[in-house]
Amino acid sequence: MLIDHFPVLGLRLRTPRLELRLPTPEELAELGELAVDGIHGPDLMPFGVPWTELPPDQLARRVIQRHWKTLAELKPDSWALNLAVFADGVPVGVQELEADDFAIQREIHSESWLGLRHQGRGIGTEMRAAMLHLAFAGLGADEAVSVGYLDNHASLQVSRKLGYAENGVGRSVSKGKLTFEQRFRLTRQAWEQHRSVDVTIEGLEPCLSLLGAEKE
């Protein structure tokens, strides 16, 4: 079976309201359509590459192709998991975690997006909390890092709520203009002090070697 060769297909994270896992082809199409419906308002661009401004057909295709690309390139020393986020069985967004040389660095990076119509309900915080539980409790990470543009107040608020500490301000370019981003760092100790969401993980053990996280 395919899952025997690619065990991340069986990985599941569950919180009181959410399930995070890889989507089926039909669910991936729904995610593309969700992105077309809107991720942010017209006065905000939270991404360095403004992919949300693509025409609707290209935008949906971009979501699908990025998912396929990350799966195709997944290997122990460089990987990204684009986990679909489900609330009441309906896809509401994507929570990504990625790492390079995880076996050595024990550090994960994260990105995410949430459909505009699902925002304002605490889902963004809960799905990030699930991802952090996977990173620290499941994979044995030492640190998690994140960045957010200074005008992306919702993202910055989630990081602060979950215990991330500010780790400097960096320069970046968005839509051809200089912009500034807040860098964040979360240690294992800070995560343990701020964790407040119950998370369960299923299907992790067969994935550990593929993610460079084998137990010693």
Rank of each mutant, 00 (worst) to 15 (best):
residue 85 V to E: 04
residue 107 E to M: 04
residue 38 G to L: 01
residue 19 E to V: 15
residue 59 L to M: 12
residue 9 L to M: 12
residue 163 G to D: 06
residue 8 V to H: 11
residue 139 L to W: 14
residue 30 E to I: 10
residue 40 H to C: 14
residue 109 H to L: 03
residue 114 L to C: 10
residue 62 R to P: 00
residue 113 W to N: 12
residue 68 W to T: 07
residue 134 L to M: 10
residue 71 L to Q: 14
residue 80 A to W: 04
residue 180 F to Q: 15
residue 18 L to M: 05
residue 70 T to R: 15
residue 183 R to A: 13
residue 200 T to C: 02
residue 86 F to Y: 13
residue 189 Q to R: 15
residue 40 H to T: 15
residue 95 Q to D: 02
residue 98 E to D: 00
residue 95 Q to I: 06
residue 1 M to D: 09
residue 124 G to N: 08
residue 206 P to V: 11
residue 64 I to T: 09
residue 112 S to D: 01
residue 183 R to P: 08
residue 57 D to W: 04
residue 95 Q to W: 08
residue 112 S to P: 01
residue 121 R to C: 00
residue 61 R to Q: 14
residue 149 Y to V: 14
residue 115 G to P: 02
residue 71 L to T: 06
residue 4 D to Q: 13
residue 182 Q to V: 13
residue 40 H to A: 14
residue 84 A to D: 04
residue 215 K to T: 13
residue 211 L to F: 11
residue 88 D to N: 14
residue 179 T to A: 15
residue 2 L to E: 06
residue 121 R to G: 01
residue 160 R to Y: 08
residue 13 L to T: 04
residue 36 V to M: 02
residue 69 K to P: 00
residue 205 E to Y: 09
residue 38 G to D: 04
residue 161 K to H: 12
residue 56 P to Q: 12
residue 65 Q to A: 00
residue 109 H to V: 07
residue 43 D to S: 10
residue 93 G to E: 00
residue 163 G to P: 12
residue 65 Q to G: 00
residue 199 V to G: 06
residue 78 S to P: 00
residue 112 S to C: 07
residue 133 H to F: 12
residue 37 D to V: 08
residue 150 L to W: 05
residue 147 V to T: 11
residue 137 A to Y: 11
residue 51 W to V: 00
residue 159 S to T: 09
residue 70 T to S: 10
residue 7 P to K: 08
residue 57 D to H: 12
residue 69 K to Y: 01
residue 92 V to H: 05
residue 67 H to F: 10
residue 145 V to C: 05
residue 43 D to C: 01
residue 35 A to H: 06
residue 99 A to I: 09
residue 155 S to E: 06
residue 143 E to A: 05
residue 92 V to E: 05
residue 81 L to Y: 03
residue 81 L to F: 01
residue 168 G to D: 02
residue 145 V to Q: 11
residue 14 R to C: 04
residue 86 F to S: 14
residue 4 D to I: 12
residue 154 A to E: 07
residue 4 D to H: 10
residue 167 N to T: 09
residue 67 H to T: 09
residue 211 L to M: 13
residue 77 D to L: 12
residue 98 E to N: 07
residue 209 S to I: 09
residue 93 G to T: 05
residue 116 L to N: 03
residue 36 V to Y: 07
residue 144 A to Q: 03
residue 108 I to L: 10
residue 159 S to H: 12
residue 71 L to C: 09
residue 119 Q to E: 02
residue 102 F to T: 13
residue 184 F to A: 06
residue 106 R to H: 15
residue 167 N to M: 02
residue 86 F to T: 15
residue 208 L to G: 10
residue 190 A to D: 13
residue 158 V to I: 15
residue 91 P to S: 11
residue 96 E to M: 05
residue 128 R to T: 06
residue 48 G to K: 10
residue 83 L to Q: 07
residue 199 V to P: 12
residue 194 H to G: 00
residue 26 E to L: 05
residue 22 L to S: 06
residue 106 R to D: 00
residue 171 R to V: 02
residue 79 W to V: 01
residue 148 G to R: 14
residue 77 D to C: 03
residue 216 E to Y: 03
residue 180 F to R: 15
residue 138 G to I: 07
residue 101 D to G: 04
residue 27 E to Y: 03
residue 18 L to F: 10
residue 152 N to K: 15
residue 43 D to T: 08
residue 142 D to F: 10
residue 4 D to F: 13
residue 70 T to G: 02
residue 207 C to N: 12
residue 49 V to C: 01
residue 127 M to N: 08
residue 37 D to M: 06
residue 162 L to E: 07
residue 49 V to G: 07
residue 176 G to A: 08
residue 106 R to I: 02
residue 56 P to E: 04
residue 114 L to N: 11
residue 183 R to C: 08
residue 135 A to M: 15
residue 155 S to G: 08
